[in-house]
Design a protein around this nucleic acid. Sequence first.
DNA 1: TTCTACGTGCGAACGGCGTTCGTGTCAAGT
DNA 2: ACTTGACACGAACGCCGTTCGCACGTAGAA
Lengths: 248, 248
Amino acid sequence: MPSAAIPAPPWRAPKKPPAARQPLSAGAVLSTALRLVDRDGLDALSMRRVAQELGTGAASLYAYFANKDELLEQLLDRVIGDIPLPSDAAPDWIAEVKRSCYASRDVFCAHRDLVKVARGSIPIGPNSLRYTEAMLAVLRGAGIPDRIAAWGMDQLSMVIVADAAESAAHAERGHGAEADSAPYLNQIRDYLAALPIDEFPNLVAMAPAMVEGSGDERFSFAIDLMVDGLARHARTDLRDYAHDGGAE
Amino acid sequence: MPSAAIPAPPWRAPKKPPAARQPLSAGAVLSTALRLVDRDGLDALSMRRVAQELGTGAASLYAYFANKDELLEQLLDRVIGDIPLPSDAAPDWIAEVKRSCYASRDVFCAHRDLVKVARGSIPIGPNSLRYTEAMLAVLRGAGIPDRIAAWGMDQLSMVIVADAAESAAHAERGHGAEADSAPYLNQIRDYLAALPIDEFPNLVAMAPAMVEGSGDERFSFAIDLMVDGLARHARTDLRDYAHDGGAE
DNA sequence: TTCTACGTGCGAACGGCGTTCGTGTCAAGT
DNA sequence: ACTTGACACGAACGCCGTTCGCACGTAGAA
């Protein structure tokens, strides 16, 4: 030991000074992963980072999840569990379905782009199943035929997920909150307005309309379109009532 | 040279025996990338693989594309160029719009999961703009107010893209062609039917309905829902015509 | 109490990714 | 013939998801 002040022998030191804050469990991993997604976005989520945040190595996570996809799947289901279930006892089923759609979108939007993992996979987690069950109960209770209810449910989910994902993407692109996407949209509007008018007369003329409306307005437009359309399929024998409340 | 038959000195040999088949250009890169996506899927597309297929190194691609995202964006636009434009001179605009939606889906589905790159980004390639322009011309020609046309156009694109992506994902999961997804769907149906009936009465009862219908049927259901809804927004002052052809 | 056997947590390594840097190569201009 | 410029691209950097096998802690046997 000639050299002065060896601070610590290189071996025997590398214990874990902060050590495991929790004894490590699937739930703790999910909570940590969710926190990271909320803070840094889905693309920044890696097994290494989750493990590091837990004070361990990436390999340890594979004791609880077969792979990253399984972790993401469970993460998504946990978030879906935050969505309040629609009630089939509501007096106005149309309003109830729409309200539930808005709530779903809100929950997804509250977790940045986590919703991206929901694309292209039939959700089979317990919370997803509970939600689907509740929504189907409402639709069937409204007298919508099974086939229409199943397909409509599918389409509603798709629209909700796609819209939430698009909102998230726009928010990241403008790298700001909902309010800060205005400059980004203005940029698009100006770009459209500057196109050659002889080749793109409609795009130029509609440049302001293309970026009009907040994400919420556009979303509720889409949901109204779909739900009102579904409502027209309910009790087709009573269609002469011309059920045209809602949409504009 | 004592040892027998030195086949070739290790240096000076590594020329390119097959050599550059084409002098390398953005178009050639895109063609190669598209071929790889069609053959192996989007996830298997890497800069290295594209370059290798062209007999060069990955670094060379960066002369034509700033990064992988730009390559994918241009790839998507090239494919969108294959979609025939809807005509605003068609006698029945509703049928024309629907036909165009089907055509779009067909084109996307013809290229495996390439459509995944379309998510969450407003398409601004030249072919995308041309398509949007043509579709807007039809909708405005039908008397749909600008705001509704813009939002409706957006929603239609979203549904087309989301549906094509979902179809692609299901096709990969069943790792077969469209026809081979039947066992996969049967598996889902059986799983749903086996759920505890007291907690999931509707899911159990609707298990057959949930997987009913081909991708095409479900897609045209969704498109009908949206387009017929949009049609109801056209010339609201003439609504008493009760324009209810289509849906069901 | 001591020794052995076992289960498990995890560091290190593997192969692959997107991207960058600096050099090699060759054609056109002088 | 020489210079100059642009293009091509091998090698390397720092990530990624995943796997392997060792070291460690504990429990049961002797």
